[in-house]
Design a binder for these strands. Structure first.
Length: 556
RNA sequence: UGGGCCGUCGCCAAGUGGUAAGGCACCGGGUUUUGAUCCCGGCAUUCGUAGGUUCGAUCCCUACCCGGCCAGCCA
């Protein structure tokens, strides 16, 4: 669990502390989380959610959930619903639920106001001409020939735009600022455009829609937002945010503060690209357990607690940062380790016959469900002559640093006997199909041989057949976002399905809400989408492994 | 070569005029029937570079260098 009393501070909290000390906003703190409903939320949004809701919580303020729904062509109710679910699942409750579309009428009135102030005009250039006249990074733009239309004409044209008298692209409302500005956002930015699209909420009421820059600042003001926190790419937009609020008589003038967006190694957080993976079926939907989406992480079994802790640890700064996967993984393990029941599951089974064990004998061993927490109780594990062990736990000619089972070698079966491998049986292809072993009848629960190797096992007769799904990083490169063709960097081993995994009978008690540890392998949970008659387990995260397999390069 | 932002250990990140917190990673050691957990220890004479101010600079000033961001009728 996150230690909220040790909440790390950051430059935004310092600013808020200052504001409160100065009595700004009457000491109130109001934030908002403003997603566009054009896709599912991902780990990057989690950072923003934790920041905005976290700040509101810690300063006894408010945080609204506001959908930035000004582009009906890309937005949908499906996304709105999914986003609400994800925010709540992460553990946050919004003070008020709003939509930018709630303000369309008000926004329109303000636009009329801007025209009357001679600060906005209807421009009849087409999109391409506007682009050409915007200039470049090093050359100033050219003023539109429509820039000096008189106020009456602008008012009439704008009203007619709303009334649907024009086609898409025929006119646009622009702010009258400065075509020579070094900041391109100030070169008479478009405020409204015509779109004959059905909006998820306002349906066909409108055919003109306000642009982000114009909408966001006014929405913030109308909601009494005090600190409008957004990512770095909006830094250049702040002068425009301030310009709109300075020109108009809005209720307040919130302060926009920008912070660095989150980048995690081996993932992407571009909704466009995530959407591509989904629509081209490279993954099993937005909630594929390999996806960096909130819903994907949820299905994977990652807890909201770990995600919140992760967001706490990475901090809030203005520095573009790349976070290593290990930070997230560590948060997950820290959360899961103390609360997960232990179980033995053989993912990739190898049959073992214990030759000196009586044919029909069965025994029950008792094992702790958690090595350090007696509260989690005990369970019994059946043992018999034929068992399965992990293929990776046997090496025919073991290297010196391999202390599991090998030909002629002895190993301890976790919670049971010590066994020694006496023979290896292979098929025609030369593949190992079975091991013959001998057990030491006096070794259970004892430690007379001080064996270093301890492996997990499952009694063949009692095993439940389950499917295990082992996930690896979705991409092969640390920064897939920088790769042109995202598909080419997909890791084709990111999912491996083991349909014949064997687990001890106690697995019957596992519910969809549980997270468990398969000893020596990692933390797992049931897959909500595939578990029906058959149990399907997702690997959430591996256990830390300080041993690098022989013949394999270090994972670094 | 326009505007704006950033630069403290491999990856994050505190500190901001008085002589470098913490986490992850990594490396040792201890406990352990999970090569897990847990525990103990190690890990920046140095804060992009070069000057300057100062008794003293990561922190102030100047210049330079590196790296992102911006030319949607997207957000």
């Amino acid at each position: 669990m996150s230690n909220s009393s040790a909440q790390s501070s950051n430059f935004i909290r310092h600013i808020i502390d200052q504001d409160i000390a100065n009595g700004k906003n009457d000491g109130k703190v109001v934030t908002r989380f403003p997603p566009e409903p054009n896709g599912y939320l991902h780990i990057g949004h989690a950072k923003s959610i934790c920041l905005n809701f976290g700040v509101a919580r810690d300063y006894q303020g408010q945080c609204n959930l506001r959908f930035d729904d000004t582009n009906p062509e890309k937005e949908s109710q499906e996304y709105i619903d999914a986003i609400k679910k994800d925010v709540q699942w992460l553990g946050f409750n919004w003070s008020e639920l709003r939509h930018a579309s709630d303000y369309f009428e008000k926004l329109y009135e303000y636009a009329v106001e801007l025209i009357k102030l001679n600060k906005a005009y209807v421009c009849s250039l087409n999109a391409e001409d506007i682009r050409k006249q915007r200039g470049t990074l090093t050359e100033p733009g050219i003023e539109s020939p429509y820039r000096n239309r008189n106020i009456e004409e602008n008012l009439e044209l704008f009203a007619d735009m709303r009334a649907g008298k024009y086609k898409e692209g025929e006119h646009v409302l622009r702010a009258k600022i400065d075509m020579g500005s070094g900041n391109i956002n100030l070169r008479d930015p478009v405020l409204y455009r015509i779109k004959y699209a059905t909006h998820p909420r306002t349906q066909d009421k409108w055919c003109i829609y306000p642009m982000y820059d114009y909408t966001h600042c006014i929405s913030d003001s109308l909601e009494g937002i005090t600190h409008s926190l957004c990512t770095l790419e909006f830094e250049d937009h702040r002068p425009l945010y301030d310009w709109v609020l300075d020109e108009l008589k809005t209720p307040s003038h919130p302060q926009q503060i920008e912070f660095a967006r989150l980048s995690v190694e081996y993932t992407i957080s571009s909704k466009r690209k995530l959407n591509l993976l989904v629509s081209d079926k490279h993954v099993d939907g937005w909630d594929d357990p390999r996806m960096p989406t909130i819903s994907g992480m949820r299905r994977r079994g990652i807890t909201p607690e770990s995600i919140r802790e992760f967001c706490d640890r990475i901090g809030i700064t203005k520095k573009d940062a790349f976070i290593e996967m290990s930070v997230l993984e560590n948060c997950i393990r820290e959360d899961l380790d103390p609360r997960s029941n232990r179980l033995m599951c053989v993912i990739n089974p190898l049959k073992v016959v214990i030759e000196n064990y009586p044919d029909d004998k069965e025994e029950e061993f008792t094992a702790k469900n958690h090595p350090k927490d007696p509260e989690q109780g005990k369970r019994s594990i059946p043992f018999s002559k034929i068992i399965y062990i992990e293929r990776d736990d046997f090496m025919e000619e073991p290297t010196k640093d391999f202390f599991r089972l090998g030909s002629g070698k002895e190993v301890r079966l976790r919670n049971a006997y010590d066994i020694k491998c006496t023979d290896v049986i292979k098929n025609d292809m030369g593949e190992i199909v079975e091991l013959l072993c001998e057990y030491d009848p006096d070794s259970a629960g004892k430690n007379k041989k001080k064996l270093k190797g301890i492996i997990h096992w499952v009694s063949a007769k009692h095993a439940i057949n389950v499917e295990t799904r082992i996930y690896d990083r979705l991409f092969n490169t640390p920064n897939p976002g920088a790769v042109e063709d995202i598909i080419s960097t997909l890791n084709n081993k990111s999912l491996s399905i083991h349909k014949d995994s064997k687990i001890e009978p106690h697995a019957k008690t596992i519910t969809l809400e549980d997270r468990v540890q398969f000893e020596r392998q990692g933390f797992f949970c049931l897959d909500s989408k595939h578990t029906k008659e058959k149990l399907v387990f997702n690997r959430i995260v591996t256990l830390r492994d300080s041993w690098t397999k022989p013949g394999q390069a270090s994972k670094k």
